[in-house]
Simulated assay, not measured.
Amino acid sequence: MRRLTYFVATSLDGFIASPEGAFDAFLMRGDHIEALVREFPETLPGPALKAMGISPDNATFDTVVMGWNTFAAGFPEGVRDPYPHLRQFVCSRRHAAEEASGEVVVSKEDPLDLVRRLKSESSERDVWLCGGGLLAAHVAEEIDRLVLKVHPILLGAGIPLFASNAYVRRAFRLESTRAFASGVVMNSYQRA
């Protein structure tokens, strides 16, 4: 069975974006980016990969699941097919497939059912939970691995890593931690 991996950048105080949904406070340069490009190139948007001349092998992920606001973050730059190298599922009950492009699937299916279906597929690659916080909270019981790129910033408010009023208790064990000169620390946790 495949794993669901929540691979996301977060501030020291646990926010994945500003209150408006912006993530421009996160460090976009530094040695952590070099590691990201080398180890997780499939997590970079298609336009960035094209600009760098990279064709990812999708060694870790072949499928990405995200909420509408995460998907729509690229709209101001005209990006409506952010990860063309992956199978893309956008969870939204309010938006239509016509608002996306390429092979993006806008799913009205319950996110928990969608994630369970994707995890049951035969594949050695993980399913990437890209964001956002509401979706992460909704599917928390199916998250098998957390990879948190903790940036040395405080936001004070914004979209939390898990945004929900629901109480979810899950234990994880630390697999690895890496500190970068940029100040970013990448922590990987496996569900206990």
Rank of each mutant, 00 (worst) to 15 (best):
V104M: 11
L134H: 13
P41N: 03
H138P: 00
L114M: 08
S122T: 11
H138W: 00
L36A: 05
P45H: 06
R80A: 11
A25M: 10
D62S: 15
G102T: 11
A137W: 01
R145K: 12
I54T: 07
A51Y: 04
W68K: 12
A137F: 00
G53E: 13
E103S: 14
R29W: 13
F40Q: 06
F61Q: 04
A96G: 06
L148E: 02
R93V: 13
C130G: 00
V104C: 05
E109N: 05
D113T: 01
P111G: 11
P160D: 06
G21Q: 04
F23P: 00
P56I: 10
K50D: 13
R80M: 05
P47L: 08
G67F: 01
D113I: 00
D31Q: 01
G158T: 08
G131T: 01
E121V: 00
V127N: 11
S164G: 15
D31Y: 02
S101L: 03
L49R: 13
F162T: 09
M28E: 14
F75A: 15
L129R: 12
E77C: 02
R94D: 14
A51R: 15
I153S: 07
C130M: 09
L114F: 03
L161V: 02
G132S: 07
E39D: 15
S55R: 14
V127E: 06
A163M: 04
G74Q: 10
D57F: 04
L161M: 10
R87S: 10
G30M: 03
L148C: 09
G133N: 07
